[in-house]
Write a protein that binds this DNA or RNA. Structure first.
Length: 423
DNA sequence: TCTGGGGTCCTAGGACCC
DNA sequence: TCTGGGGTCCTAGGACCC
């Protein structure tokens, strides 16, 4: 690659130009925008579950001063910060706002990847000429301002030649700021961190690292690759060696392909009754089925997850040779799986969930006839759990979806479903 | 005051095929 | 009669992220 002109894009010629756009305390921001007279007026604002078993999804910066963190049980957060106001997650508004930010970013960058509801990676590589040599820091700041103006959402941006560097830089940028790490300074930038601040290192890995006497990135960077591999395996060893140097070969991938859809609910009180669990299961299947059909997908694998009263989490899954999409078929498989899980251990459950994966496009049905017969390996589905779904059933399910879309979710539903809010 | 809900990715063993 | 080997798929569980 021929360096175009170094004074126009200082330092960034011939390397990737990656930005991470991160919405500042996204759920809090959205809650305030949606309810300016209520949530908007409380500096100490917590967003999350308000039940005895709920946790905090997001806390305002003022509330964080009191030690409140996301993922913390609401009860504990209330104890730490008694004057805080707790509001529920404005889920639909968050999805809408997230979409608005993403759509705008697509106008501003050639490659956009949504990493979560409030994080978006941009690959600005190759935009130098189009942007008339605007430096990456200036680009990041411009994007920050445009997003704020056009979507009302305050964002911070981190930038660098690698995704992991952009990610860590975002923290230095918050709130409502920009931080770009120049090419060549990745390792020095990372060396200031503790290992717990590296994305991908959680409590389990951290404990393993500490057992080897490693606490900081700088300490780890001094260890040879061979030793890291010997200690942490052929996958995580080399991975760690790269990360502590700010090396991250992963690319910003704009192709969004949903891999799974799931719905789960923690009950207000443990449920031990099988019939009650079945009713809950049906409700979850309807939720997942609706999302599946809305995305014009079918699922080959159905998974049921149960969390017992003692927090032991178990799951069972089953794969069909063909994708299914109707609530009835999903429930038939899920019900059988729940039966197995309950057979193995019949005790009070605090959570029940249904997930689908191995997703195939509805439109892929034609080829599926042939692909299905060529299925190899352990594709044999346990006999009792194979479900047949007719084209007629699918047509009806989609028609029901349309009625619900027009007249509301309550318009048509199976008699046995009990919505959580009706308890 | 016990631990939400939505995801992704990895591992490891067994089945099965060539 | 002592056990190959590579590849893929399925399943369960776990780690991690926001």
């Amino acid at each position: 690659m021929v360096p175009r002109s170094s004074e126009r894009t200082p330092g960034f010629e011939g390397v990737r130009r990656i930005l991470l756009v991160d919405c500042d305390m996204f759920f809090v921001q959205v809650a305030r925008l949606e309810d300016p007279q209520g949530a908007g007026k409380h500096p100490l604002l917590l967003v999350g579950g308000r039940s005895a078993r709920g946790v905090i999804t997001s806390a305002s910066y003022a509330a964080r001063e009191y030690g409140v963190r996301s993922g913390m049980p609401t009860m504990r957060a209330r104890a730490l910060c008694p004057d805080a106001t707790v509001v529920p997650v404005p889920r639909e508004a968050c999805v809408e706002r997230s979409r608005a930010v993403r759509d705008l970013l697509r106008e501003l960058s050639p490659v956009v990847q949504a990493a979560s509801i409030d994080e978006f990676y941009l690959d600005m590589t190759g935009t130098e000429r189009m942007l008339k040599g605007e430096g990456l820091t200036a680009t990041a700041d411009r994007i920050r301002r445009v997003v704020r103006e056009r979507t009302e959402i305050a964002v911070s941006l981190g930038g660098g030649t690698q995704r992991v560097v952009a990610k860590v830089a975002t923290r230095a940028a918050k709130p409502d700021g920009v931080h770009v790490v120049p090419p060549g300074e990745e390792a020095a930038f990372m060396a200031r961190l503790r290992l717990k601040d590296l994305p991908g290192i959680g409590p389990a890995f951290l404990a393993q690292l500490e057992r080897k006497g490693l606490r900081t990135v700088a300490e780890t960077a001094a260890v040879e690759r061979e030793w890291l591999t010997r200690w942490f395996g052929p996958s995580r060893g080399p991975w760690l060696w790269e990360r502590v140097r700010g090396i991250d070969p992963s690319e910003v991938d704009a192709r969004e392909r949903r891999k799974s859809i799931s719905s789960e609910r923690t009950f207000f009180e443990d449920v031990g009754d099988d019939e009650e669990l079945e009713r809950r299961l049906l409700g979850l299947c309807c939720s997942v089925g609706g999302q599946l059909r809305a995305k014009e997908l079918r699922a080959r694998t159905v998974t049921v997850k149960i969390r017992d009263h003692d927090f032991r989490t178990r799951q069972a899954g089953s794969t069909q040779s063909k994708g299914i999409e109707t609530d009835r078929a999903l429930f038939a498989v899920a019900s059988s799986l729940l039966g197995e899980l309950r057979h193995r251990r019949r005790t009070g459950a605090r959570l029940l969930g249904v997930g689908v994966s191995n997703l195939v496009r509805q439109s892929a049905t034609q080829t599926e006839l042939f692909a299905g017969s060529a299925t190899t390996g352990g594709a044999d589905v346990p006999r009792g759990r194979t479900v047949v779904e007719t084209e007629r059933e699918r047509t009806i399910a989609r028609a029901v979806d349309q009625v619900r879309q027009r007249f509301g979710r309550q318009a048509l539903r199976p008699a046995r479903v009990l919505e959580p809010e009706e308890r």
